[in-house]
Computed example of a mutant assay.
Amino acid sequence: MTHTQPGTMTAMSKEMQDCVNACMSCHTACEEAMSSCMQQGGQAQMQVMRALMDCSETTRMCADMMMRRSPMAGEMCAMCAKACDMCAEACMTMPDDQMMMRCAEACRRCAETCRAMSTRM
């Protein structure tokens, strides 16, 4: 963490901002997919719902940790990438559902940026 003045942090790098944005987009996609699954009722598989919930919470927490420059953000990015990979796989089990396919794409994009960020922090 680089400081310009005591107690003042420098602006986020473009890579970190891109990662935060990918996390928040993924969080939104997971929340929307969960809502869609709940509206469908019994058709939603519990494994898919668990993956969506884990990914949604992990991406939100990961973005929060990066924004506040947590010393654990790198580790959180690695965990977030794993949660996103698992969620993308779960979403792909419902290939006829466009919402799930959009969610899988957001998860893949987030996993890629988080994996890259985990090695830079």
Score class of each variant (00 low, 15 high):
residue 2 T to A: 10
residue 2 T to Y: 05
residue 7 G to L: 07
residue 7 G to I: 06
residue 7 G to W: 06
residue 7 G to C: 01
residue 10 T to Q: 12
residue 11 A to P: 02
residue 13 S to Y: 00
residue 14 K to N: 04
residue 14 K to I: 11
residue 14 K to C: 00
residue 17 Q to T: 10
residue 17 Q to A: 14
residue 18 D to V: 03
residue 21 N to F: 03
residue 21 N to I: 07
residue 23 C to W: 08
residue 24 M to Q: 14
residue 25 S to Y: 01
residue 27 H to V: 01
residue 27 H to W: 10
residue 28 T to W: 11
residue 29 A to Y: 04
residue 30 C to S: 07
residue 31 E to D: 09
residue 32 E to Q: 14
residue 32 E to R: 11
residue 33 A to V: 04
residue 34 M to R: 12
residue 34 M to N: 02
residue 34 M to C: 10
residue 36 S to C: 10
residue 36 S to Q: 07
residue 36 S to G: 01
residue 37 C to F: 07
residue 37 C to G: 07
residue 37 C to Y: 03
residue 38 M to S: 07
residue 41 G to M: 03
residue 42 G to E: 12
residue 50 R to Y: 11
residue 50 R to K: 09
residue 51 A to M: 04
residue 52 L to E: 02
residue 53 M to W: 09
residue 53 M to I: 09
residue 53 M to T: 11
residue 53 M to Q: 14
residue 54 D to I: 03
residue 55 C to R: 04
residue 56 S to N: 13
residue 56 S to L: 08
residue 57 E to P: 00
residue 57 E to F: 08
residue 57 E to Q: 15
residue 58 T to N: 04
residue 58 T to L: 07
residue 59 T to V: 10
residue 59 T to W: 03
residue 59 T to F: 02
residue 60 R to E: 08
residue 60 R to I: 00
residue 61 M to K: 08
residue 62 C to Y: 03
residue 62 C to A: 08
residue 63 A to S: 13
residue 63 A to L: 05
residue 65 M to S: 09
residue 65 M to Q: 14
residue 66 M to G: 05
residue 67 M to N: 14
residue 69 R to M: 13
residue 69 R to K: 13
residue 69 R to D: 03
residue 73 A to M: 13
residue 75 E to C: 00
residue 75 E to K: 14
residue 76 M to V: 06
residue 77 C to F: 04
residue 77 C to D: 12
residue 77 C to K: 04
residue 78 A to P: 06
residue 78 A to E: 10
residue 82 K to G: 05
residue 83 A to I: 00
residue 84 C to E: 07
residue 85 D to L: 08
residue 86 M to R: 04
residue 87 C to Q: 08
residue 89 E to R: 13
residue 91 C to S: 03
residue 92 M to D: 14
residue 92 M to P: 00
residue 92 M to G: 02
residue 93 T to V: 05
residue 93 T to W: 00
residue 94 M to Y: 05
residue 98 Q to R: 12
residue 101 M to V: 05
residue 103 C to H: 02
residue 104 A to F: 04
residue 104 A to N: 04
residue 105 E to R: 09
residue 106 A to Y: 04
residue 106 A to P: 01
residue 108 R to G: 03
residue 110 C to G: 08
residue 110 C to M: 05
residue 111 A to E: 09
residue 111 A to K: 10
residue 112 E to V: 11
residue 112 E to K: 15
residue 113 T to R: 13
residue 115 R to P: 00
residue 116 A to E: 12
residue 120 R to Y: 01
residue 121 M to K: 06
